[in-house]
Computed example of a mutant assay.
Amino acid sequence: MSRPQDPHRPFFPFGNPFRMISPKGSQMSPRLISILNSFEETLAERLSKLIPEDKGDVLSLTWMRSAMESLCETHTDVKTLITDLELPVTDWDQKWIDVYLDVSVRLLDICIALSSEISRLNQGHLLLQCVLHNLESGTPERYMKARSSLDNWRRHICSKNPRVQSCGSILDSLVETLDLPKVKNSAKGKVLMRAMYGVKVETVFIFSVFASAFSSSSKNLLDLTIPDTVLWNRAFSDLQTRVNGEIRETFSSGKFTALKELESVDSIVKALYPAIQDGVQQPPEVEEALKICFTELQGGAEKLSKGLDLLAKQVDTFFKIVLSGRDALLCNLRVSSTETNAVTTAGNIVEHQVVR
């Protein structure tokens, strides 16, 4: 469901990009069609695997890690596709290069924001360790310290990260890049642009989900309308409907987070807090409940910390993939420019000698 204050954002702000990559002026060969279909079929399978089987999987850190793995694989597939197309950078339209460089730097910005939030959440693990350490002693004085650490943990996880709050504007700018450049008389260019379209849609969607999860708000969610001409349309639509619907339902119910592992720890903390009375001896039944909460908090805190660590590694891997692709393109452009200058210089020398 969608809340009134969270209007759906349009997907095609400048029209349907597939009108621009229709095969007018250049027909795709069977080989190019095979390359494109293979890419899109793989993307469809990848998106299908991300569709949660259970509501509890949205948004678990395990699912989020799988989503980042999927992005890494898709971006790697594009590199392979470019190689298969045998389309050197010298044949790229300048608009394609500009869009790629612009999009890549924004993706790096989002990665930095997500990494900072994962690190911030993981810092709360130290506070939970202080709670567990103080509870082990069983003395009233240590219970008071444990309560103080619980208070600090709650304030910490409920605070806002300015970097994450800025992701909304970055996502809006990325949506604008989904209006593909026009491709004229280049069948290989059409294949490249259509593949890049799929990459950008998956990337923008997953990052919008992450931004919503980490900002504790569904306002960053995007509802993307995909043309049925792409082979991954059904898989993407099913994934988007399932994930976005569950996130909106979570926040509309008043929960402060959509992260399942964080929500689980918070529930344990809420049960634990009343059992720790400042300097008051607890009855046996309360002490027994306290022991159960202690054990649950140990397990929950460890699961949350490990999940955040693994997710951080995947975000870092994606960051390196985007950065390496960007560096490779810039390197190729420099080489092409150097070769062009060398040819021009050689031509000028020959011309000068002929004139003499």
Score class of each variant (00 low, 15 high):
K95L: 14
K95E: 13
I97P: 05
D98V: 08
D98K: 14
V99Y: 10
Y100K: 12
Y100T: 15
D102V: 08
S104V: 08
S104M: 07
V105T: 14
L108Y: 15
L108P: 06
L108T: 07
C111S: 09
C111V: 04
I112N: 14
A113V: 02
L114C: 09
L114E: 12
S115M: 13
S115F: 09
S119A: 09
R120M: 07
R120P: 02
R120G: 06
L121I: 04
L121V: 09
N122Y: 12
Q123S: 09
Q123I: 09
G124Q: 04
L126V: 14
L127F: 03
L128D: 01
L128G: 03
C130L: 15
V131R: 05
V131K: 07
V131D: 02
L132T: 02
H133V: 14
H133S: 15
N134L: 05
L135R: 13
L135G: 09
E136Q: 14
E136I: 15
E136R: 13
P140M: 01
E141I: 11
E141W: 08
R142A: 11
R142S: 11
R142H: 10
Y143K: 10
Y143P: 02
Y143Q: 11
Y143L: 11
K145A: 08
K145R: 11
R147Q: 06
S148Q: 07
S148T: 10
S149W: 06
L150F: 01
W153T: 00
W153I: 02
R155V: 09
I157E: 06
C158W: 11
C158H: 13
C158Q: 14
C158D: 13
S159L: 03
K160H: 03
N161M: 00
N161V: 00
N161D: 02
N161R: 03
P162L: 00
P162R: 00
P162H: 00
Q165I: 05
Q165C: 08
C167D: 11
G168M: 05
G168C: 09
G168T: 08
I170K: 04
I170T: 06
D172Y: 10
S173D: 14
L174I: 06
E176D: 12
E176W: 14
T177S: 15
T177K: 12
D179E: 14
D179C: 15
D179F: 13
L180V: 07
K182W: 12
K182R: 14
K182E: 15
K182A: 15
V183T: 10
V183E: 05
V183L: 01
V183Q: 04
K184R: 10
S186W: 00
A187H: 01
A187Q: 04
A187I: 04
A187M: 08
G189C: 03
G189I: 04
G189N: 01
K190N: 05
K190F: 02
K190P: 00
K190G: 14
V191N: 01
V191A: 01
L192A: 07
R194W: 03
G198C: 03
